[in-house]
Amino acid sequence: MISFVQPTRVLLDPLEGTRIAVEARRWLWPLLLLVACVSASGVAFALRWNAAPAVVRQLQSAGGLERMTESELSEEIQNASRKALVAGVAKGVLLMPLLTLVLAVGLWACAWLLDRPAPFARLWSAAALALLPIALYHLIFTLCALAQPSLSEAQVQDLVPSSLAVLRDLGPKVARAARAVDFFNLWSAGLLGLGFSAATGMSRGRALVLFALLYVALAGVVFVGLPGMAAAKAGGAA
C-alpha cells in the first residue's frame, strides 16, 4: 500500500513527495497508473468517436466513395472504430513506457552534461513520477469522453480545457503558442525539475529554471515550429 500511496503523494505534496519517491526509487506504480489512464482514455475515445465523417472524408479524397455500397461503407466505419480502439490501447501500453524511457535518458544526458552524476534508477523514477499529471489528464479525459453521447475529432483537443487555447478569436500562430501553455504539461515539467533535483542533488530552484527553459524550447518546436511549417507547406501546395 505504501508503494502506491507514496508516488501519488507527489501530486499533493510535490516538494517532499517527489524527493522521497525518487530516493526510494518508486517508479512501478506511477508507470502502471500512466499506462492504465492513457489506455482508458484511448478506449473511451474509440467508444464515443463518431467515425463516419472522417471515413467519408477519407474515401472522398481517395475517390472510392462512389463505388461503395452502403454495407461496405458501414464496414469501413466499423473498421475505423476498431483501429482507433487498438491504437488507443497501444498508446498506453507501448508508447507511454517508451516516453518514460526517453525522458529518463534525457535526464541522464542532462546530468552528464552538467556533471551531476546520478543512478539511472533514480532518473527513471523521476521521469515516471513527472508523468503523473499526464495520467491525471487522461483520467479526466476518460470521464469526460464517456459522458458524451458522441465525439468528433475536432472536439478532442478542447474536451478538457487545460491550456490558454480555450481563449477565442486568437490568430493561428497565437493559438499554437497558447496551446503550449498547458496546465498539465507545465505541472509535469515542474515535477521533472523537482525529480532531477532529488536525483542529482542540484538545488530545486536551479532545476526548476532549467526545466522551465527546456520546456519552452521543446514547446516552441512541437506547438509552434512544426505546426507552422506544416501549415506553410499545405498552403504552398494549395
Score class of each variant (00 low, 15 high):
1 M>H: 12
8 T>D: 01
8 T>R: 05
8 T>K: 01
11 L>H: 05
17 G>D: 06
20 I>L: 15
24 A>M: 02
25 R>T: 04
25 R>W: 05
26 R>C: 11
27 W>L: 11
29 W>N: 00
30 P>I: 01
31 L>Q: 06
32 L>G: 03
32 L>I: 12
33 L>D: 03
36 A>I: 14
36 A>P: 13
39 S>W: 02
41 S>E: 13
44 A>D: 13
47 L>S: 10
47 L>F: 10
48 R>L: 10
52 A>E: 12
56 V>W: 04
56 V>F: 01
58 Q>N: 07
58 Q>I: 10
61 S>I: 08
64 G>F: 11
64 G>A: 09
68 M>Q: 08
68 M>C: 02
71 S>G: 02
72 E>P: 03
72 E>S: 09
75 E>V: 09
76 E>V: 11
76 E>T: 04
78 Q>C: 04
80 A>Y: 12
80 A>C: 06
81 S>V: 10
83 K>N: 12
88 G>W: 00
89 V>E: 06
92 G>L: 05
93 V>S: 12
96 M>E: 12
97 P>G: 14
98 L>D: 03
99 L>E: 03
101 L>T: 14
101 L>N: 13
101 L>G: 13
102 V>H: 14
104 A>C: 15
105 V>Q: 15
105 V>W: 15
106 G>N: 09
106 G>E: 13
109 A>F: 08
114 L>P: 01
118 A>H: 05
119 P>D: 10
119 P>K: 08
120 F>M: 09
120 F>V: 03
120 F>G: 10
121 A>N: 07
125 S>W: 02
130 A>M: 10
131 L>M: 15
132 L>G: 00
135 A>T: 01
137 Y>F: 15
138 H>V: 00
141 F>C: 08
142 T>E: 09
145 A>K: 04
146 L>T: 00
146 L>V: 03
147 A>S: 11
148 Q>I: 00
150 S>K: 07
151 L>P: 05
153 E>T: 05
156 V>H: 02
159 L>K: 03
162 S>N: 11
165 A>V: 03
168 R>N: 02
168 R>L: 07
169 D>I: 00
171 G>L: 10
174 V>A: 14
174 V>M: 14
175 A>E: 08
175 A>N: 10
176 R>Y: 11
179 R>A: 15
179 R>S: 15
180 A>M: 14
184 F>Q: 02
184 F>W: 04
190 G>M: 06
191 L>D: 01
192 L>E: 05
193 G>N: 08
200 T>H: 06
202 M>V: 04
203 S>H: 08
204 R>D: 06
206 R>H: 12
207 A>K: 03
210 L>A: 11
213 L>R: 13
215 Y>W: 07
215 Y>I: 01
217 A>H: 12
222 V>D: 13
224 V>P: 03
226 L>I: 02
226 L>V: 11
228 G>I: 01
229 M>F: 11
229 M>E: 10
230 A>W: 08
231 A>W: 15
232 A>S: 14
233 K>Q: 10
236 G>M: 08
